[in-house]
Design a protein around this nucleic acid. Structure first.
Lengths: 188, 188
DNA sequence: GCGTCATGCGTACGACCGTACACACCAAGC
DNA sequence: GCTTGGTGTGTACGGTCGTACGCATGACGC
C-alpha cells in the first residue's frame, strides 16, 4: 500500500489555487490547466483528485464560504455588549472578510453561480443561515434578517464603488436599523 | 454604397441573444458560436459587428442596465404620495424587473463582471446613480442610499432562496427604514 | 451593361480545452 | 530480490474556441 489514497495536502492546495484563479480571471476563465499551474501540480492530478471542474469549484467555494462564515461568527460572538455588537457589524462591512477586493470578487462569483445553478445554493444558504444565526445572538430575528440583507447590499456597493468607502456610512446605516429594533439583551 | 454600414437591426439582435445566452449558461459559458446561433446570424457576423466578445458583453449589459434603470425610474416617478412611493419600492423588489430569475441572474453576472473588471463598473455605477436619483425624488439622500443597498440585499436573498419570497418581508424592511427617514414631501 | 467597391459571410487555422488511459513509480509481502 | 498492486503522472486525442481572411454579393455611378 502506498502512504495514502488521496494526498489531502495536495488536494487542499488545488482548492486554494482554484480560489486564486477564480479571483483573478473569474469562473469564466478557470481551466484545469490554470489551476494546476497555480497549485504547482501536474495536470493529471486534477482528474485524479476531482471528478470534474465543477467539483473543484464546489469544494473551493465551500471552503471560502466556511472561512467567511467562521470569521463572521467569531466576530459576532466576541461582542459582549450591544454597543460592541453594533461595532462588530460595522467591522464586518468595512474591515473584515468582505473587505478586500479579492474576497468581494469571490463572493460575487459564488452568488452568481448559486443564482444560476441550484446545486451551489447549498453553499450560500448555509452561509446565510450561519450569518443570521450569528446576528440573532444579539438581535431579534427580523432585525437580523434586515441587517443581513443590508450588509450584503453595502458590501456590494463597496465592491463596485470606484472610490474608497466611508466607514461612517455603514455605521449610520446600522444605527438607523437598530433604532427600530427590539431591545434584546445579549444571550449569556 | 450599400444600404448601411452596420445593420443596426442585426447588431441589436445579437445583443439580445447575448443576454439570453448569458442568462442560460452564464458569462463563463458564452461563446461567439452560441450567441450567433441564438441570434440566428452567421458566425462571421460576430467579428464583423463587434471587436471581440468583451464588447458584445459590454453592449449587452449596458442595454440590460438601462432597461432596468428606466423601469426603476418609471416606477418611482409614477408614485405621487409618500405611501405610493413606499409601495413602489416594495414592488421593485417583489414584482418588478428584478423579480424573474432571468433578471436576477443577469444582474448577478453583471455585478460579478464589474467587481473584477473596472471597465464594467461604468455600467453599474450609472445604474446605481440612476436608482439613487429616482429614490431621491421621494426620500432624503441618506435614506435613498440605505434603501438602495437594502433593495440590492433583499433582491440577492430572493435570487438565492429556494422557497418563494414573502412580499411582507420587503414591506416590513422598507417601513423600518422609512420610520427613521426625514419626512420629505414629494417634489412637484 | 458593366466596372467598382463596401458589406457581410463561410471557412479554416492555431490555440486551448477536458479527459481518458497507459504507464512509471514505490511500498509491502514473501 | 522479485512480484504485486495501488498511486499519481505524462501524454495524446477529439472537440470547441476566437478570429483572420478570401470571396460572394449586390448597389451604385456611369
Amino acid at each position: 500500500m502506498n502512504v495514502r489514497r488521496h494526498d489531502p495536502e495536495r488536494r487542499s492546495r488545488i482548492i486554494d489555487a482554484c480560489l486564486d484563479v477564480v479571483a483573478e480571471v473569474g469562473v469564466a476563465g478557470v481551466s484545469h490547466r490554470k489551476i494546476a499551474a497555480a497549485a504547482d501540480v501536474p495536470l493529471g492530478s486534477m482528474t485524479y483528485h476531482f471528478d470534474g471542474i465543477d467539483q473543484v469549484l464546489y469544494d473551493a467555494f465551500t471552503r471560502f464560504a466556511q472561512a467567511a462564515s467562521s470569521q463572521f461568527e467569531a466576530r459576532m460572538s466576541a461582542a459582549g455588549t450591544a454597543q460592541e455588537a453594533r461595532r462588530a457589524v460595522a467591522d464586518l462591512i468595512v474591515t473584515d472578510t468582505l473587505s478586500t477586493q479579492r474576497e468581494l470578487v469571490l463572493m460575487q462569483e459564488l452568488y452568481t453561480l448559486a443564482a444560476r445553478i441550484p446545486r451551489f445554493r447549498g453553499i450560500t444558504s448555509a452561509w446565510m443561515a450561519a450569518s443570521r444565526a450569528a446576528l440573532e445572538r444579539h438581535f431579534d430575528p427580523a432585525t437580523a434578517r434586515l441587517l443581513d440583507a443590508t450588509i450584503e447590499g453595502l458590501s456590494l456597493h463597496r465592491a463596485l464603488d470606484t472610490e474608497p468607502h466611508d466607514p461612517q456610512v455603514a455605521l449610520d446605516a446600522i444605527d438607523r436599523i437598530l433604532a427600530t429594533a427590539d431591545r434584546k439583551a445579549h444571550r449569556p
